[in-house]
């Protein structure tokens, strides 16, 4: 564990708490892509199967449980409790275009040809593109509530912080995880556009609005 990874994980934790706060305080999931949330639940469930047979640490265990539980809870809130506030007609990204290629990539790139390792690879590739339905929705509506942008910023910060973590581990532990690093760099790059608007508008006190 190093400071970058700890801050990254805390940022990830914060992003989920911000998302829950947004849904509870506005009593609405307007502006949140159900598809992205469903992809994240899929990512956590397929990646954390090792919960049942591999002990890493209490920290690791608690975080995994939290990510699985909170992502399922968000799906419940969107699908049942606040269902009327979710508009599927603007959440139109075709997730099969993500799931298919990620499955193929997992078959091509993995560390071992076992079901848990294939699912791990799949989850890594899927996480790297899971935000696309959300960003696509943002692009379509052209604006977002400020709290939603804070959620996305925290999520992007989590990914960005994993990059110095990998550099640090490369030097101190001689450890490189090429699958996670490649997917992680792609994933972080997807946020660049969003970050530009976030820093130049939202953090200056303006509303998040994309140029027409």
């Amino acid at each position: 564990m190093n400071i970058f990874r700890l801050l990254g994980d805390l940022s990830h934790l914060a992003s989920i708490l911000i998302l829950l706060q947004k849904i509870q305080s506005t009593r609405s999931c307007r502006g949140i892509s159900f598809k992205t949330q469903a992809l994240y639940a899929t990512v956590f469930i397929t990646r954390y199967l090792d919960l049942f047979y591999d002990w890493v640490s209490l920290y690791n265990f608690v975080m995994k449980i939290f990510f699985i539980a909170s992502s399922c809870y968000v799906l419940y809130l969107m699908k049942y409790k606040y269902r009327p506030t979710h508009d599927p007609s603007i959440d139109t990204f075709r997730v099969e275009y993500l799931l298919g290629p990620c499955a193929v990539l997992a078959l091509l790139f993995h560390y071992r040809f076992t079901l848990p390792e294939l699912l791990w690879s799949f989850s890594i590739f899927l996480e790297s593109v899971a935000i696309l339905p959300q960003l696509f929705m943002l692009q379509r509506t052209g604006e977002a509530e400020t709290i939603t942008t804070h959620y996305l910023a925290a999520l992007g910060a989590y990914r960005a912080l994993y990059i110095p973590n990998w550099i640090y581990r490369w030097f101190t532990e001689d450890m490189v995880d090429p699958i996670a690093v490649t997917a992680g760099i792609v994933q972080t790059a997807l946020y660049l556009d969003f970050f530009y608007v976030y820093f130049t508008k939202v953090l200056q006190g303006q509303k998040f609005e994309l140029p027409a």
């Binding site: 990830h12 090792d50 890493v56 995994k64 071992r112 994993y162 973590n165 001689d174």
Partner: peptide, 10 residues
């Protein structure tokens, strides 16, 4: 070189 027996990152 990484030992991929388990993945310690989240």
């Amino acid at each position: 070189v990484l030992e991929h027996d388990h993945h310690d990152e989240l």
